[in-house]
């Protein structure tokens, strides 16, 4: 039994070490955001609320948060609606191209988004869409669509088809059956898809960084860079404070999703490893 004890103690020790290493960079964000003498290292803060107050002002940070909500919320909505419509025939009809289509969708989920940004930029320039928030919103929606279709189809497969057949017998059209029978049962799944898209879009830096040049239109993901010396002066206190404000919605939504799907596995679970 003592050998077992030693092994357990050793395992706990290793875990504690790893936990410390993972905690250290995070700790900096917390202490620095409220430290009047903010620097690059973790230290006992000289407490102040000034950093949060200044980054929440409309011009410096508030507007960018709102832009982020518009972009990511819009993208989430577009993706969810398009994915639900697209998943219906895939889940319910016998289609000859179903398998190749799903293969392609799965294949597209793996492609690195970074790689298409140069051609997307030149397309946006050609069609005069640079600085158009609507175009960026639709692009973000399209970027998460393959994964959203995959998830939605799996959720829809879980709704028994007998329920719809009953509706068809009663004379309802397929779209009506989708609206009145399938969707109510799928609402939690659709919410997961929407939240997932929102988190991805909210956290995406590269896309708006390339496609939105007007600071008044940039979302928080890009605006946070202004505190990182883009404007000449590095202000670590405000950088950390704004980072936290920008992060809180993601953490909140993540908790909602993982609660809904049970356990932290949620976001990876949809991948079906």
């Amino acid at each position: 039994m003592t050998r077992r004890r030693v092994a357990a103690a050793l395992a706990n020790l290793v875990l504690a070490g790893i936990a410390l290493v993972f905690a250290a960079p995070l700790l900096w964000l917390l202490t620095t955001s409220v430290d009047a003498a903010a620097g690059l290292r973790v230290q006992v803060p000289d407490l102040t609320g000034q950093h949060f107050a200044s980054v929440l002002a409309w011009e410096s940070g508030g507007r960018a948060l709102w832009n982020g909500v518009l972009l990511s919320g819009g993208a989430a909505l577009v993706t969810m609606v398009a994915a639900t419509f697209c998943a219906y025939p895939l889940s319910r009809y016998q289609l000859r191209f179903r398998r190749p289509f799903l293969y392609t969708v799965l294949f597209a989920t793996g492609l690195p988004l970074t790689a298409v940004m140069v051609p997307v930029y030149s397309l946006f320039v050609r069609f005069n869409l640079i600085d158009s928030r609507l175009a960026v919103l639709v692009f973000l929606a399209a970027a998460s669509l393959p994964f959203a279709i995959w998830m939605t189809k799996n959720f829809m497969d879980g709704v028994p088809i007998e329920l719809e057949e009953a509706a068809w017998v009663d004379g309802a059209s397929p779209m009506r059956a989708l609206g009145t029978v399938v969707l109510p049962l799928m609402l939690p799944g659709m919410a997961v898809v929407a939240i997932f898209t929102f988190i991805l879009a909210w956290g995406n830096f590269f896309v708006p960084f390339i496609l939105l040049l007007d600071p008044a239109k940039q979302p928080a993901a890009v605006n946070v860079l202004t505190y990182f010396g883009q404007a000449g002066l590095v202000t670590y206190g405000q950088l950390a404070a704004y980072s936290i404000v920008y992060t809180v919605p993601v953490v909140g939504l993540y908790l909602v999703v993982s609660r809904a799907l049970g356990g932290a596995f949620s976001l990876t679970g949809a991948v079906k490893a």
Partner: peptide, 20 residues
């Protein structure tokens, strides 16, 4: 703690690492 580093938006994670 491990999941927190992953849930953070990428750019925030990068700032935290930069400071570290």
């Amino acid at each position: 703690l491990v999941v927190a580093a992953w849930v953070l938006p990428e750019i925030v994670a990068a700032f935290a690492l930069y400071a570290f």
